[in-house]
C-alpha cells in the first residue's frame, strides 16, 4: 500500500512539474475581427511569429506603445516577418472609439476585439498594456506595462527568436 502512495505522489509531482513548465500555448478562443466577423485566435498564431498586444482606447500607455511601434513596424516586418495583432479589450462603453482611432492613427496592425475579455481572462492578464510574443502557437515571451524604449527591447527579443528558428 505504501508503495502505491509513493507512486501516486511521484505521478502527481510529475504532473504538476509538467503543468508548470509546459510552454503555454494560445487557447482556442473566438474573437471578433475588425468587420465584426468571428476570428479564431489560435488559427491566426499557429504557423508564424506574432506579437499580441492587449490595449484599450482609454489606456494612455497602450496608445503610446502602439504609436511607438508603428514608426518601426514596416522595418520589423521586412527583417523578421513578424506580425502584430492589437487586441482591444474595450467594452461597450468605449468600443465605438476603436475604429476611428486605429484608422486615423494609420496603425497598420490587424485589430481584433476581445469585448467581454474572454482571451484576456484565460491568459490571466490583469493589467494592460500587455505584450506577448507567440511563435507557432506557443507563448515565448510576455511583458506587462509600457515605458518609452520598451519597443526596442521587444524588437531585440523578436530578432533573437526569429534567428533561432
Amino acid at each position: 500500500m505504501n508503495m502505491i502512495i509513493k507512486l501516486n505522489f511521484l505521478v502527481f509531482s510529475l504532473l504538476f512539474i509538467n503543468l508548470i513548465t509546459a510552454q503555454k500555448s494560445i487557447p482556442n478562443i473566438t474573437l471578433q475581427g475588425f468587420n465584426n466577423t468571428p476570428v479564431e485566435i489560435k488559427s491566426l498564431t499557429n504557423n508564424n511569429l506574432t506579437i499580441l498586444s492587449f490595449w484599450a482606447t482609454w489606456c494612455i500607455p497602450c496608445i503610446n506603445e502602439l504609436n511607438a511601434i508603428n514608426g518601426y513596424y514596416q522595418e520589423w516586418q521586412t527583417e523578421t516577418n513578424v506580425k502584430l495583432i492589437a487586441i482591444s479589450v474595450d467594452d461597450n462603453r468605449t468600443i465605438s472609439r476603436v475604429r476611428p482611432m486605429v484608422i486615423s492613427n494609420e496603425w497598420e496592425y490587424e485589430i481584433l476585439y476581445d469585448k467581454n475579455q474572454d482571451l484576456k481572462r484565460v491568459l490571466q492578464i490583469t493589467n494592460i498594456p500587455y505584450t506577448l510574443i507567440v511563435q507557432n502557437g506557443k507563448i515565448v515571451f510576455q511583458h506587462s506595462g509600457y515605458t518609452p524604449g520598451d519597443e526596442e527591447l521587444l524588437f531585440k527579443k523578436i530578432k533573437e527568436i526569429s534567428f533561432k528558428q
Partner: peptide
Amino acid sequence: GYSKKGLGID
C-alpha cells in the same frame, strides 16, 4: 462613423 487615414468621426 466614418474614418480614413488621418481622420475619424464617430
